[in-house]
Design a binder for these strands. Structure first.
Lengths: 109, 109
DNA sequence: TGTATATTCAACCATATGGTTAAATGTTAT
DNA sequence: ATAACATTTAACCATATGGTTGAATATACA
């Protein structure tokens, strides 16, 4: 059974780990099999397998089985969901940064 | 001592908790003191205090002491950092969604 | 000065997380 | 049929997380 609902809990906790963010970046550039994904990290394949399961649950990646190996790509839906969440706050920071900028300009004079 | 570097680890793990996301939303709307923040949740004040410490470490909120109470506001820097991270992927999902859309249009005909 | 109010700290507990190693599974090649 | 390869599962361990309660601290008020 797979979890189908996009949950901010699982998306953000996936993104909270640097190895998982790095994997995400690499499978964005090109589709990779799991052994290739594991290569750069000084941890076991079993540990990588767990990281991938977490990313998959959060719907940040997609696995495609092909023969004895498996290929992984990014799946942008969950990231978009996180982006939409954060964008709710965008107007807020724009406003604040504008205010900061105008303060700095005053200082220049 | 306070942590000064904006870390995606601490920002995303802060955002991974629904209570913390809810607090963030509420202190965006208006500045609140800690007792007011705690009110809606069925957990102890001590637990809320811990959540606030986590949000503060991640630089998602700012605390302002005033007499015996403390007021909390959002601090958009960390959120902006998270937004920038996610935006790296924006072109990617736009592209994919465009492709999806054109596929759907073909289906209409 | 003493007491009430606001918040944090300390000690503790249960469960989650991120890692390990060894065994199990499924697929391809000999 | 068997061996090699790719990956997952199981059992385990140490540390982190999110909660609790009770005591401690700091400020305001009578």
């Amino acid at each position: 059974m797979v979890e189908y609902t996009l949950s901010l809990d699982s998306i953000f906790s996936s993104l909270a780990d640097p190895i998982r963010r790095d994997i995400l970046k690499r499978v964005t550039e090109r589709e990779l099999n799991i052994s290739d994904i594991a290569m750069p990290y000084p941890i076991s394949l079993a540990a990588i397998s767990k990281h991938l399961k977490i990313l998959e649950r959060a719907q940040l990646i997609i696995k495609r089985k092909q023969g004895k190996e498996q290929f992984v790509t990014i799946s942008p839906v969950a990231l978009k969901h996180a982006g939409d969440y954060i964008d709710q706050y965008a107007s807020l920071w724009d406003e604040r940064f504008d205010r900061l900028e105008s303060l700095l300009k005053k200082g220049e004079k």
